[in-house]
């Protein structure tokens, strides 16, 4: 992989051990640095086992990359509360104590009505917003207390955002859009572009890597955005209504890319949606009602990606058959 400062192959026990070390440290100032370093080390350890992206698809058959590290707790929210206008008459509590966890390799979905606090929850998980109270751990590290710059750092390396409105940078090619998070990770220009091209190929957008967002359709934009989310090989992909602005067929194509990333590359994905159909395709469905998680169950539908994969017997890869539909 391209971004490893340190190549280490931690075992699961080692990870647990180092987490405890971090927790036991008393000095707050030095703790921040330790947290960052530790998170990075763990990522590199994990990423080491999954090879370069280009090879990931071909390795998928063996299943070794996809199943590696599966089951470890990646994020945990304990009794997270979020209130606005604190101390005024209009004080408004949006999240009333959310507790949830996401394990590595899981494709989890949060469904909820509008106004249920989905976006607030997503912003909190994405470290764009700080909770009013409660605990939030990413790989066992309490991120509630660290500085803004350290939050930026974690967002950059550990979280891949996919927005409903794509949020690609205007007048900037797909390639440069995908390369952008790597700019803030300090990756040299040449490597950035090479990796961005690989990622665009992964989502079937290689032919359009020099196009501006204004020259792309909604589905294409979202595919570029997904490639961008993968840029720094994050621990988790946070997708906030990624298909909310797309028609149902394009939605399914985008959804299939998520399935592909999940199954072939072992990506951990947390998605917010109000489409019950798409939600049923996920491993886990969490229901958010009025700022509280009220239910959890497994998805019931076999998704089309799996169907396409088994149905493909004319020599095309699953990716190709998916992408031909858009």
């Amino acid at each position: 992989m391209l971004f490893h400062k340190k190549r280490e192959t931690d075992t699961t026990e080692d990870k647990a051990g180092s987490r405890n070390d971090a927790d036991s440290k008393a000095g707050v100032n030095s703790k921040d640095d330790d947290i960052i370093r530790e998170v990075e080390e763990q990522t590199s350890a994990e990423a080491d086992s999954s090879e370069v992206i280009g090879d990931a698809a071909s390795d998928a058959g063996s299943g070794s990359a996809a199943t590696q590290g599966k089951g470890n707790e990646l994020i945990r929210l304990n009794n997270i509360k979020k209130a606005y206008y604190i101390g005024t008459e209009n004080e408004l509590e949006v999240l009333h104590g959310v507790t949830l966890n996401v394990n590595e390799g899981e494709f989890t979905c949060i469904v909820g009505e509008s106004g249920s606090g989905k976006s607030t929850l997503m912003n909190t998980i994405g470290l764009l917003d700080r909770p009013t109270s409660g605990e939030y751990f990413i790989r066992g590290i309490d991120v509630a207390k660290i500085s803004d710059d350290d939050l930026s750092h974690i967002r950059n390396r550990q979280i891949g955002f996919v927005f409903q409105t794509y949020n690609l940078i205007a007048r900037t090619s797909s390639l440069d859009n995908v390369a952008m998070p790597m700019l803030y990770a300090g990756v040299p220009l040449k490597e950035r572009r090479a990796r961005a091209a690989e990622l665009l190929e992964l989502v079937g957008m290689k032919e359009r890597m020099n196009h501006d967002p204004s020259e792309l359709s909604g589905g294409q934009k979202q595919r570029v955005a997904i490639a961008r989310a993968l840029a720094n090989d994050p621990a988790i992909i946070l997708a906030d209504e990624p298909t909310g602005a797309l028609d149902s067929q394009t939605s399914q194509t985008v959804m299939d890319i998520f399935h592909k990333l999940h199954e072939e590359r072992g990506c951990t994905i947390l998605m917010i949606t109000h489409s019950n159909k798409l939600a049923e395709e996920c491993d886990r469905i969490l229901t958010l009602v009025d700022g509280r998680i009220t239910g959890e169950r497994a998805g019931t539908e076999a998704h089309e990606y799996a169907a396409a994969k088994t149905a493909t017997d004319d020599g095309k890869t699953a990716t190709e058959s998916i992408l031909e539909k858009d």
């Binding site: 750092h153 967002r155 950059n156 949020n167 952008m180 803030y184």
Partner: peptide, 16 residues
């Protein structure tokens, strides 16, 4: 503004 928001979400520190 949205570009700035996006850059921040994707990990740009204030200094950048």
């Amino acid at each position: 503004t949205r570009e700035i928001g996006t850059r921040k979400a994707l990990g740009a520190p204030n200094s950048a």
